[in-house]
């Protein structure tokens, strides 16, 4: 009867471990829900209190009663992220095209490894690098310096998504394009882009989400302007995550509220970007 006992032991062990794993998984999942929940709840409260002008006014002073708004940060974030995305995406796309078209070349392999390791660079170090090159050179923190820092941070993400988009093209299409006598560039333009456009678009959206939410590269590069909406690309500006970070560090209650409102807006933007990216790719049928 020892076999039966062994089976029972196995069953017991199985049940125990499964319960433990499920509990752990639930405990892990819980904070993720809590974060979304608490930021949404507090954020909506702030937005209701501040009204529509939260999107259009300047941030408050510590002694103000009204919450003011986060317009400079919204404008700064939008402009810097758009510039950064266009730089990052073009470099990443060209590199991705090179490494997928010439996969066995030594240089392609090096580029591949470098891009994959690139995401290991702490974004703070990127910010310091841009500070000591662009900011020192221009003698001022600026929107463009922030955009450069963000583009460096976004590049590896764009590369990873673009390569997987280009590599997802079935080999038959590639062969068909080549057998028609198309050059590689023509094949890219008329065949590959059409097939992989949804993957490319979703990669673009996710890279944008990464860029718009990053704080550390902006700390020493973009400045922190709270008394003007927009002063030019070569002048200091502000950004949404930066505003949240600095206001969260400050001791004033009113700044914490503004930070929560801004965090809610950022969270909604990001979730929207992710959902669109997800929906776009789900439709792909090859």
């Amino acid at each position: 009867m020892s076999e039966l006992r062994y089976l029972r032991l196995r069953k017991l062990k199985n049940a125990l471990m499964l319960t433990l794993m499920l509990t752990l998984a639930f405990l892990t999942f819980l904070p993720l829900l809590l974060i979304i929940g608490s930021i949404t709840l507090e954020g909506i409260k702030v937005l209701l209190k501040a009204g529509v002008s939260f999107f259009a006014s300047l941030p408050p002073k510590p002694t103000d009663v009204s919450l003011g708004g986060i317009a400079p940060a919204l404008i700064g974030s939008l402009i810097s992220s758009s510039i950064a995305l266009s730089i990052a995406a073009s470099i990443a796309f060209i590199s991705a095209f090179l490494t997928t078209e010439f996969p066995n070349n030594v240089i392609s392999r090096v580029v591949e490894v470098v891009f994959r390791s690139f995401s290991g660079i702490p974004s703070l170090a990127v910010g310091m690098f841009v500070y000591s090159t662009v900011v020192v050179f221009m003698r001022t923190q600026s929107l463009i310096a922030g955009a450069v820092a963000l583009s460096i941070v976004g590049m590896p993400y764009a590369y990873v998504y673009f390569t997987s988009a280009l590599r997802s093209i079935p080999e038959e299409y590639r062969e068909a394009a080549m057998s028609l006598g198309m050059s590689r560039l023509k094949a890219l333009r008329y065949v590959y882009l059409g097939i992989s456009r949804k993957y490319l678009l979703s990669g673009l959206l996710i890279t944008f989400a990464k860029i718009i939410g990053d704080t550390a590269p902006l700390l020493f590069t973009i400045g922190f302007v709270t008394n003007a909406y927009f002063m030019g690309l070569d002048k200091p500006s502000n950004a949404l995550p930066l505003l949240i970070f600095i206001y969260a560090l400050s001791p004033y209650e009113i700044y914490h509220s503004v930070a929560l409102g801004a965090a809610f807006i950022l969270l909604v933007t990001l979730i929207a970007l992710f959902e669109i990216a997800h929906a776009v790719v789900k439709e792909v049928r090859l």
Binding site: I212, T215, L267
Partner: peptide
């Protein structure tokens, strides 16, 4: 994909 600043806050 949620930015770390939101976790921090």
């Amino acid at each position: 994909g949620v930015p770390t600043v939101i976790y921090g806050l």
